[in-house]
Write a protein that binds this DNA or RNA. Structure first.
Lengths: 198, 198
DNA sequence: TCTACAAGTCAACAGCTGTTGATTTATTTC
DNA sequence: GAAATAAATCAACAGCTGTTGACTTGTAGA
């Protein structure tokens, strides 16, 4: 089964599932770093070591590919495990500083992908739907307040703000000593708490 | 001088300054609603009622146009009038709910333009430079703390977060009664205060 | 009025975009 | 081993992108 890995090279031959996975993986890496419109299918195909035509064939087109990248691990949305409103600030702060297991990092990555391409007309629709369903909804449910919806919005704003700051504007207050990283996580937690309680 | 307006139609004839202004205005409106990569020069030219060739001729190309859109009113950066650290939360909250004079709205619009296209490789560089120089710098100077830089980052994160929430994700917690609008402004102010003091 | 120059237009370019049909190649089934 | 089937490739497509050179037209100065 070593052939089913997502390695771009290597003798992967005529294994539809594996190539599909390779394309998906390459696409995720690209969409993580550039916007929907600026990523070309040929870039992705090149990374995956695959002919361009296969993408349109397997995913029905660029939009389909993008949708699949986002939906692939939808089962593990941004917030999966049982959480109480009190846990949220610490959880989100950890998520944001990418401290935690691989799964958690992966969740944040999906979030960044959404953030990056939200301005593209085609990708935007897909993303907005997903944000409502998969982020705002669960968030509001966890809060369960009378102002739950509004507070979910505030939390999301902070989450997106930090995400943009770090991943898109490349203003990384986090590279530095572990001490600095810990301090940032603390401040982020404070901010999330404020968003939740103000 | 009624010819120097930015109206797309109307008998604007052989007035280089006016057509330049019309192009700039049309570009700003487009970049306000779509990302750098998804806006075509022909769209802008069409809006401005002008031949496409003129854009490359007047602005040296798409990147030049984008840069000019951002630099045009650089003299009125996001923060212009004398402000103290104590004023910041209220000021930014007002900015964000677009409550205030035309100038202030205009400043927030420029900010949204930056936010929208930050993920595009070409536009991104331009934007990041400008954010450092025109937003983070002044912000840190106003704060003047020992942790000024870090706190400026936090403020910017909140500012961007709310901007993305409203203008890009189209989750507008603000359309509604003036009462609701006022409540949101209050909450935003709280959030900015938290970012500044935590 | 004629001339000179700037302003604007037109057509075409090379390069890239996503997508599709026909074709080849490897794998499995009988 | 031959036939059938799925996987991957190739070449080409129409449409769009930003940009450029040659051309026309309007306007101001002599």
């Amino acid at each position: 089964m070593s052939r089913t890995t997502t390695a771009p090279l290597g003798a992967r031959k005529r294994d539809a599932i594996a190539t599909r996975a390779a394309i998906l993986s390459a696409a995720r890496q690209r969409f993580l770093r550039e916007s929907y419109d600026s990523v070309g299918l040929r870039d992705i195909a090149g990374d995956a070591g695959v002919d361009v035509a296969l993408i349109s064939r397997y995913f029905g087109g660029k939009e389909g590919l993008f949708r699949d990248v986002l939906l692939r691990d939808k089962d593990e949305g941004l917030l999966r495990q049982p959480l109480t409103a009190a846990d949220l600030p610490a959880y989100l702060a950890q998520l944001v500083v990418e401290d935690g297991d691989e799964n958690r990092q992966h969740r944040m990555e999906m979030f960044i992908v959404m953030l990056r391409s939200a301005s593209s007309p085609k990708a935007g629709e897909i993303i907005r739907d997903l944000v409502h369903l998969d982020v705002l909804g669960p968030l509001a449910e966890i809060i369960g307040d009378e102002h739950a919806e509004l507070r979910a919005n505030m939390l999301l704003a902070v989450l997106m703000g930090i995400g943009v700051l770090r991943s898109i504007m490349k203003i990384d207050a986090l590279d530095g000593s572990p001490h600095q990283r810990a301090e940032c996580e603390y401040r982020f937690r404070c901010l999330f708490e404020a968003a939740l309680t103000c």
